[in-house]
Design a protein around this nucleic acid. Structure first.
Lengths: 193, 193, 193, 193
DNA sequence: TATGAATGAGGCTTCATTCAT
DNA sequence: TATGAATGAAGCCTCATTCAT
């Protein structure tokens, strides 16, 4: 149950951080949202920074496991890209904070996450590894073009993030998921052999 | 000369904001970097928020004019995409702050930029308009696929930004510009008819 | 057994207070050191302040009884001074907290110990009384000079404390007890007729 | 004038620290006492700890220079001890905080003053050096007994401090300075050949 | 225009103490 | 008795902004 409450705090923080940004979210904000006292949060997390770091780990692990499940299916690369794109925008619909968090907090506070234990980007390593698996698998199956991993990664994840950004800007006319088919096809075209 | 000094302040702020983030950059930091007094900055910009907003306008105008020049050339869409990709990563090499600023400041502080006068994303309208011009021009010339603008925008700008992110993470082995050819081809493949 | 546990808490507090100071020692610190719960400490002592006050009483009573035993012996004043000096530095070697406590906690938090019941210094009254007994006894036996009690007290106890201070500063080359002979002789010379 | 204000802050802090102890004195307390804003104090001293450390340096330098002047006079050791005792209790009468500070703050927060730059006790080095000069000078002139420096230091400074303590406890019937003659004679007797 | 000292609200964090179990 | 999660007041410190010079 202690673990349970820790997770609740994490989810609430994730939500507020992703809605308002790291600096604009105060510990009292989080406490109030949870109807919990300020001090008690510190019984679960030693600092606001640590809370933000755990949130990164948490949300990147969701993305990683989502993609892992897809990678484990017996699908073509094209299908996998589509499946992940769909899942990604489903997450945005249900728990937008999981993805928004990267844009709002991680991107702009990277240095905050660097310390002797974690190397910043490593926090998302599991997810990056799964992307690599998807890509190298497609290359092996001669479905995808053999090209620099960073380029493919940028195309794939950059495109997904780009639409997320536009969604956050309220620039889209439809919900992101409506664009899933179209965007995943474009991504596929960029990566295919 | 007043205009001249205003611009110096802007450039310095842009540099510091993009290096350290908006909240981690203080007005005294900026003043010190310029060997100017804190108070005097307020003779040129009414607030720190306003400074950040002007910085957005400034840096998006650079991107916009860069792309405008390319659009005005007599080139195929493929060439234009390549040209802009190159320019984009050249900017990153010479003045990374112009691009980093979006990642560090704009993305995570959007609400800050919303007020009665500016609608946030509108700050980058000029640039978005040029992207649209590039794309619709390609469609007209039957070089690019006719598809939802937001999807194409996400692919194009998302991919460029994705690599910038990886560069910021020190995840790349080469300078971003080394990937320009490869990434612009992928983008083209994603968008072509 | 309740009394027994109470004493254990007291000893632990005394140790931590004297090692780290009153404010730097928290109730959770004490609880953890004892493998006891925070709340349970409050079943034995009503407050942290009270704990500190009891610790003073406890440690001054040790000094008082040590000196009382010496006073009850059939010794010259010179011998008594030497005996007490030795005992004092033995205590420092075995349980430095008993003496350090005065320096770390009592001296700098006197006001804390003043309330309607106790008058601060009175906490050490037993000990002060024994010092007085030693001195007046020496005067009666025409061994010690008849002089103002506070002056003699300052010389005697001040000198012992001075060396304790230097020991705490790690300024001494030997253990305090090595200086016992020399220092007690000096004290005697200061007080003798 | 900036230096002047810095000194005023120092004196005020010294006064409050010595009256109430380090932890019981808050920065707002100090600010209020000076009719100054909290933030402004930080324009002069980077932290509360640093303020306390500067106060140590300041007050030990006063003691050091007082004793240095006496050492430079052509006096017997007995006279020097008397002179310094008098000065010491004069300081207590006029600016008790200078001496009380050691008892209230330094003694009980030593570890606070230890860092890579200052070694705690070194803060008082100037003063300790002057005491050594007084003593070795007396030994050379065959007025004082050749004995361990730490022992003599403890007798001399311990005795002075002992009476200060009693004064702080309001245990004395007269002002400390009334005891100067008597106490300096006892000290001399302890140290003489 | 330029300076930089001054202000004070507000954020993070700590910890004595309580209380439900 | 014993536990330890929960409370919330209070402290240190930062920094955007102002203003007297």
């Amino acid at each position: 149950m202690k673990e349970r409450k820790k997770e609740t705090i994490l989810m609430t923080s994730l939500k507020l951080f992703s809605k308002n940004g790291f600096h604009a979210t105060t510990i009292p904000n989080i406490a109030k949202e949870m109807k919990m006292s300020v001090g008690n949060i510190y019984n679960y997390f030693p600092s606001k920074n640590n809370l933000a770091k755990c949130a990164i780990k948490f949300s990147s692990s969701i993305l990683a496991s989502t993609l892992r499940k897809i990678n484990n299916k017996n699908l073509t690369s094209k299908e996998k890209i589509y499946e992940f794109t769909k899942s990604y925008y489903e997450i945005i619909e249900i728990s937008p904070e999981i993805i928004e968090y990267f844009l709002r907090v991680y991107l702009s506070n990277r240095s905050m996450f660097d310390d002797e234990n974690d190397k910043g980007f490593d926090l998302a390593k599991d997810f990056v590894d799964e992307v690599e698996r998807l890509l190298s698998d497609g290359i092996n199956k001669q479905e995808l073009k053999k090209q620099n991993f960073y380029v493919s990664f940028s195309i794939f994840i950059g495109a997904l993030g780009g639409l997320t950004f536009l969604n956050g800007e309220k620039a889209l006319e439809e919900k992101p998921i409506q664009y899933a088919k179209e965007i995943s096809e474009s991504i596929y075209n960029a990566l295919k052999i």
